[in-house]
């Protein structure tokens, strides 16, 4: 029985470009199987906080990170951690949708293929399942093999959600700009996954 918080952030300090401090002494517990919402004015550090949980922070050059982020009790900044395994556990949906330059089907199958989780008919079923979860299946079921860039922006956002849902094992994070209940934007939290959402711009 796991009762500890899913994610524990301990004394997290993040500096951009060496000098600018983005996060100062952040301590935070994100409980398991709940929706957690992080909100605040623009520029207060919501995005770096989310990005610290899937190690996206380090993609920007000159970022220095101090402190601990524990996912399931495991420090993801410990030396020797496999970044790709962390990101397989911890999904992140960007504010703006970025469909990959391939078909709708391949976009959803992307993560499953990369981690070689499913293939053949199993993959077809998974793609259908996650498109349904994202509420996009009815709109695209007849054109699964067309380029994803032809979808509207709203459809692209749901496609990226389906792509994220498809591979993530435990945790799902998303950024929402519009105000409003997270359930309305992301669909009901039917999967038993921890979700941390970020809202801003009220």
């Amino acid at each position: 029985m796991q009762t500890e918080p899913h994610i524990q952030i301990r004394n997290l300090n993040v500096y951009y470009q060496g000098t600018h401090q983005a996060l100062r002494d952040v301590n935070l517990d994100i409980p398991r199987r709940q929706i957690t919402v992080i909100m605040g004015p623009s520029g207060c550090g919501k995005t770096p906080l989310l990005q610290s949980i899937n190690r996206f922070l380090e993609l920007q050059e000159g970022t220095r990170i101090f402190g601990q982020v524990l996912v399931d009790g495991e420090d993801i900044y410990a030396p020797g951690m496999d970044v790709t395994e962390i990101r397989k556990k911890v999904g992140l949906l960007a504010q703006r949708p970025y469909p990959l330059p391939m078909s709708i089907y391949e976009n959803v199958a992307y993560g499953l293929r990369i981690h070689q989780l499913k293939k053949g008919r199993e993959l077809d079923e998974a793609v259908r399942h996650y498109l349904e979860s994202a509420g996009l299946w009815e709109e695209v079921k007849d054109r699964l093999h067309q380029p994803a860039t032809r979808l509207s922006i709203g459809q692209q956002q749901r496609l990226c959600l389906a792509r994220g849902l498809a591979y993530v094992v435990f945790l799902y994070m998303g950024e929402v700009v519009e105000a409003g209940p997270a359930e309305e934007v992301f669909g009901n939290p039917r999967q038993m996954r921890t979700r941390a959402y970020l809202e801003g711009q009220f």
Binding site: N54, F56, L59, T84, E85, I86, R87, K88, G91, L92, L93, A94, R96, Y98, P99, L100, P101, Y110, G111, I114, H115, C160, R163, G164, Y167
Partner: peptide
């Protein structure tokens, strides 16, 4: 953003 979309999947 496109790169990150792919990296985010692991």
């Amino acid at each position: 953003g496109l790169r990150h979309a792919s990296l985010a999947v692991g």
